[in-house]
Write a protein that binds this DNA or RNA. Structure first.
Lengths: 155, 155
DNA sequence: TGCACACCCTGTAGTAACTTCAGGGTCAAG
DNA sequence: CTTGACCCTGAAGTTACTACAGGGTGTGCA
């Protein structure tokens, strides 16, 4: 007989919050589970593994959309997994670009920080003077380059 | 006589959108400007520099809150700038931590990607099998570590 | 003078991936 | 029969913006 968990058990077992699990369900990252008489969600071993898959993907900073695509591919075992490879390659590309951008940022921050080695009156503070100038060409777009492209329409 | 710009001129001059400028005003990152007869915002040279300061800070990926703190310090020229230094050091720390996390992520992604060098049926795809397991201890918190801590209360 | 058109205004809602909260039900123990 | 731990739904808040609706302003041109 298959053991069932309630949402709190599952949350604790996988070290994630109850709200996050419910949220993933709304987001279609998890299938709607069975319900008890009192309308409590009941999960089994398969659903636990499903959630673990999703959590692993999130730990790798994939978006919900990427995860949904992977889940769909997982359900089509006869197809080739070239798409899985492509998705992962693309994701690695995002991460690499983000690291490069942050490195540029870091080096500019250090340069600025060096403007003021010894505390003095703020009116003479080299850092504040530096920040008053226009952004360095390197950092100009650095911060905008997230791991994932920001959405075009609104936030 | 001091030249004045309308919001569109200022936006173009500093390569930022009109909406962003209005948004910064609402966020108290910019002081409310003078208005024309027709209720148009009118900016002068000082406000232009103020905005440039803010934009530079944003290019360095500071939060609005950090920027507001810096702005306040800038208005107290007699105080010591030790706080400016501290703020910047802390910010550099965030960036450094984020880079470290992303490097760990990148290496785990590459490991996973290597599970499947040649396309085959998804049911045999090493990547999907890997993702089904529990997250590697390194990546477990990697994605959660943003440049800035995520807010505690809701989103 | 009338109108097109570029520009400006305010206010509201949408974005990602959650978290928090309000206002309630369920259920086992004491 | 009440207490307390747990569960439910639905709505709103978070960051830093962007987009859009519905309206005013102001200048050039016929």
């Amino acid at each position: 007989m298959p053991r069932t968990y309630r949402i709190g058990d599952l949350a604790q077992a996988l070290a994630v919050s109850v709200e996050t699990i419910r949220y993933y369900e709304r987001e279609s990252l998890l299938p709607p589970p069975a319900r008890s008489e009192g309308n409590y969600r009941l999960y089994d071993q398969a659903q636990r593994q499903h959630l673990q898959f999703v959590l692993h993907c999130r730990a790798l900073d994939m978006t919900h959309d990427e995860i949904r695509r992977l889940l769909k591919l997982r359900e089509a075992p006869e197809l080739e997994c070239a798409e899985v490879n492509a998705l992962l390659d693309e994701h690695i590309g995002h991460v690499t670009a983000r690291i490069r951008a942050l490195r540029a940022l870091q080096s500019e921050l250090r340069t600025i920080r060096n403007q003021c080695a010894n505390p003095r009156a703020t009116k003479d503070c080299g850092i504040l003077h530096e920040l008053a100038g226009s952004p360095a060409p390197t950092s100009r777009n650095a911060a905008a380059l997230a791991v994932h492209d920001r959405p075009r329409r609104g936030r």
